[in-house]
């Protein structure tokens, strides 16, 4: 693939002059054919925006779902007067189940305090002070790894004589599980389809730029230029298109990040979205996809002229 001069002898200087030649040629011809290059870059930017926009929505939805899934918990109300030893036996028995993340014990006092806090937060009057006794039961809050597993845990809790009542979350658990599965599958499929479309459009745009220089490639071939010398200037030019497109895309996204995250915040409500990690992922995606697509597009386009 590389010219023989690069493989044997004076490798360093030959490689440097080869790179200098390819890069400077790529840079000059990018600007010499400015209209074509800018059209390719604009296409690249649009495609990257499409790709990253979809990625952000997908990531936001999945993060939201994960949050909801973690919130799925089975609550078992305990009968009043259950001895502490019985409670801790049950607690450790449930905690040992593989489907369970952890089990928290909420005492009667704790339950009352939470209730009062809740009322206060909503700005409603606290009426519990009118009651002589605490009417709320102590309970065990069981967090599940997956919403689907609620059935097993509920059965185990109901079997215990000290359990008064187990909240029925069948419907909620079902819905969450279904939505998350559908979203994951559809998301991956859509991402693949969009990726393929982006690849196709970008490759064709770069191909147009290469076809415009068919005569130059023909002359290079006739004077005995090796494949590497023909290919790499175009590949670097494709990489320029990709990098510049990625830069513009990231600039646009950075400008839109604030209103976008506020919108997502409102849309999904109080979700603890880790925007930092999404931003990092998107930057990597945009840079990687832009450069990769540019290089791939140029490589494929030039290949047509090299196979003879």
């Amino acid at each position: 693939m590389l010219p023989a001069a690069l493989r044997c002898g004076r490798l360093g200087s030959a490689l440097i002059s080869f790179l200098a030649f390819s890069l400077s040629r790529a840079w000059r011809s990018f600007w010499r054919n400015a209209a074509m290059s800018l059209a390719a870059t604009a296409t690249m930017t649009l495609m990257l925006l499409l790709l990253s926009g979809f990625w952000i929505v997908q990531a936001g939805m999945l993060a939201g779902l994960q949050f909801v899934e973690q919130k799925v918990q089975v609550v078992a109300d305990l009968k009043d007067g259950t001895p502490e030893s019985a409670v801790s036996t049950l607690q450790s028995k449930i905690a040992a189940m593989p489907e369970v993340i952890d089990v928290a014990y909420v005492s009667k006092d704790e339950a009352l305090r939470r209730y009062q806090e809740n009322r206060q937060a909503r700005g409603e009057e606290d009426q519990t002070s009118f009651l002589g006794v605490n009417p709320l039961p102590a309970s065990l809050e069981v967090r599940l790894r997956k919403a689907d597993d609620f059935d097993i845990v509920t059965t185990a809790l109901r079997a215990d004589p000290n359990v008064q009542r187990v909240t029925n979350i069948a419907k909620l658990a079902d819905q969450v599980a279904t939505i998350s599965q559908v979203l994951r599958t559809v998301g991956v499929a859509l991402l693949a389809v969009i990726g393929a479309i982006v690849l196709f459009i970008v490759i064709n745009t770069i191909r147009l730029a290469v076809v415009g220089r068919a005569e130059e490639i023909e002359i290079m071939r006739l004077v005995g230029a090796s494949d590497a010398f023909i290919r790499w200037p175009f590949v670097f030019e494709g990489a320029f298109v990709g990098l510049i497109g990625a830069g513009v895309t990231l600039a646009i996204l950075a400008g839109a990040a604030d209103p976008l995250s506020r919108f997502m915040f409102d849309f999904f409500r109080i979700l603890p979205l880790s925007l930092g990690s999404i931003a990092r992922d998107v930057s990597l995606l945009v840079l990687g996809a832009g450069t990769g697509l540019g290089i791939l597009g140029a490589w494929i386009s030039v290949r047509t002229y090299l196979i003879r």
Binding site: M1, A4, E215, E218, I219, L222, V223, G224, A225, D227
Partner: peptide, 21 residues
Amino acid sequence: RRRVPRVRRKVGIVFQDFKLL
């Protein structure tokens, strides 16, 4: 295939339509 360019350099070719850039 990779040796073709070296052999082409042994041939100087001139066309009717010059083929200049």
